[in-house]
Structure formats: structure tokens, C-alpha cells
Design a protein around this nucleic acid. Structure first.
Length: 205
DNA sequence: CATATGATCCGCT
DNA sequence: GCGGATCATATGA
């Protein structure tokens, strides 16, 4: 078991944390004692005063964790189907985080496959919704402390050299797609299939 | 391979 | 009531 990333790792700009999270290991301890682990290969930064961020309009019941201490898990539900995992970054009260978008499974692949209903390793965690599903993470884990908690945390992995990190626009946002705040391991088959770019024009009949 | 669409819930206007 | 930090499937080239 590698050491966990310390609080100080998270208490920085999301723009620094996001690329530095690549290669680190997201770990989950299930209620039944099973341990899941995967190398993070894709992450997106959501900054203070970022129109694409849930925190943009201030603190609410839903996004409250984003305004708490760095190093906590912000898990939220969207599209009526999916949970997403973020690591809170920056200083307490800033409301900034990094969305964990994809990972390369290394431990507990069978359990992940059960959770997902698929067994191709590349399909287990290659998207933010898939990742939470594979990990069995829901609102129950919202607010969990990644530094000292017992259900989800991030361990020190092999950091990626800058030349193996690619960056581009964030996926799925309707504003701020001009910012290249999505980072991923170049050439990894475990990244999401999300397409960056402006949203398709809404069709009017 | 690419684009299209339905699923299905919650927070906020 | 609308639209979202999405995914799986269906359909057509």
C-alpha cells in the first residue's frame, strides 16, 4: 500500500492538481472489504469564478462540499443516471475541484465488471459516470475525506512526465469550452470517449 | 465509424 | 419546467 496524497497536494490550483493526479491511484474499500484500485488517466479542472463550475453561482446544499476543505470527495448526481467524482482543491471556501474522468483498472477488475455489467477493462472506468459506477460511489460518499477517510482515497502512484500528458477543452460543458483544462495520459486506451468542443446547435422544429 | 436518441432525476429559475 | 461536468444502444454510411 503506497502512501496517500497529503492535504497539501490538494491545497493548490486545480490547474496544477489535475495534471498531477494523472498516474496516481484511486482506491476504494467496499463495505464487504474488497479493495478496488485504478490509475487516474484523465481529469478536468474547475476553477474559482469558472462559469462551467457548479460553484459558479455560490454555495448551495448540492455543492457545499466544494466550498469545504481541500482533499475531500465531491460526488454529485446528474443526467438522471450518473454519479461523478471530484477532488476538492484550492483553499477552503474557494469552491474549486478536479473532476475524475477516467482510470486504468489495476485491482478488483471482477468487482468493477459486476458493478458495470461489462468486462472489457477499457470499458470499466473510461468516463466519469462509468468510474463512479465501477467504484460503487454515490452520494453516500459525498464529502468523504480522501486524506483520512476509510472508503475512498488516492494513493501515490508513478507521476506522469509532462511529455506524456495531453491537454484540451473540457467535455460536456456548455460554457468555457475555450479553456483547455482537461488533462489525460496521451495514447492511453483507458481515457474517455468524450468529445471536446462547442455544444451542437439546438435544433428547432 | 459517426451521429442520433432515450433514459430519468434533481437543482435551480 | 428546463437542462445538465453522461452512457448505451440503435441506425446509417
Amino acid at each position: 500500500m503506497a502512501p496517500r496524497l497529503p492535504r497539501s497536494f490538494y491545497r493548490r490550483s486545480a490547474l496544477d492538481v489535475a495534471p498531477d493526479l494523472l498516474g496516481q491511484v484511486l482506491v476504494r474499500l467496499l463495505p464487504n472489504g474488497m479493495r478496488l484500485a485504478a490509475r487516474i488517466v484523465e481529469a478536468e479542472a474547475y476553477l474559482p469564478r469558472d462559469p462551467a463550475s457548479h460553484a459558479f453561482n455560490g454555495k448551495t446544499r448540492r455543492n457545499a462540499v466544494m466550498f469545504g476543505p481541500p482533499g475531500c470527495l465531491y460526488a454529485y448526481f446528474t443526467y438522471g443516471h450518473h454519479w461523478m467524482m471530484n477532488a476538492v482543491t484550492g483553499r477552503e471556501g474557494e469552491g474549486t475541484a478536479v473532476l475524475l474522468r477516467a482510470a486504468q483498472p489495476v485491482e478488483g477488475l471482477e468487482v468493477m465488471a459486476e458493478h458495470r455489467g461489462r468486462d472489457d477493462p477499457r470499458a470499466l472506468c473510461s468516463g466519469p459516470g462509468k468510474l463512479a459506477k465501477a467504484y460503487g460511489v454515490t452520494g453516500e460518499q459525498n464529502g468523504e475525506d480522501l486524506v483520512r477517510g476509510r472508503t475512498v482515497w488516492i494513493e501515490r502512484g508513478e507521476p506522469l512526465p509532462a511529455r506524456r500528458i495531453a491537454r484540451g477543452p473540457r467535455v460536456g460543458v456548455s460554457v468555457g469550452y475555450d479553456k483547455r483544462w482537461r488533462f489525460w495520459e496521451a495514447a492511453s486506451p483507458f481515457v474517455s470517449k468524450g468529445r471536446p468542443g462547442p455544444p451542437a446547435p439546438k435544433r428547432r422544429i
